[in-house]
Amino acid sequence: MSDMNTAMVEKYRNDFLKEVEANVEEGQWVKMCMQCGVCSGSCPLGNAWAHPPQEIFMMIRAGKRDEVLKSDSMWMCTSCYNCIVRCPRELPITHIMHGLATYSKRLGLAPKTQPTSQFSEIFWNNMMKRGRVNELKLGLSLYFKDGFGQGIKNALANQKLGMSMMKAKRMSPAEFFGGHGIKDASGLQKMIKKAEEIELAKLKANT
């Protein structure tokens, strides 16, 4: 996707705010931020962010394209919606954060080893196979994402939790073999593919 990145840089040159307006979900709201900082103060994970939302908005206006898109900040959002509820200007901050994350991923700028970004990808691929999340496999692929040895260690460390979930019938070992899915998984896949194409075409058209 790096050619799209180059194309976007070409097109918007210094005007990152306009680039965000055109390409990021709910990005048109960024200009309406009045820098009160209530979002940053309300975020339960605020101190884990390199740049809290208020700062991200200011960076966008200041044209700090790389710092924003390569940042792991918007990946820290847990969608608790505290900021949306409290924003006096009613900005859809959570959506903007996810929009920025998606956009940076599309352009290939998102940090490669950021755990939530990796989890998102694993979750997505898992879900797309059968149209439902296979929790056993999701857990396992998370355990083993950093290699086999680390995977065994992770599995042993969480052994008790896994057993309890099975006892409580929250997870089934049978899932390992195929697992449950929706009626027409390939139909869903086609649908999603089409949607992705449309989105991509929209981005391309913007370049």
Partner: peptide, 14 residues
């Protein structure tokens, strides 16, 4: 009026 300015992409920098 402040919001009207923001709508028109006037940039406010503290």
């Amino acid at each position: 009026f402040y919001r009207a300015g923001q709508q028109k992409m006037v940039i406010f920098t503290k």
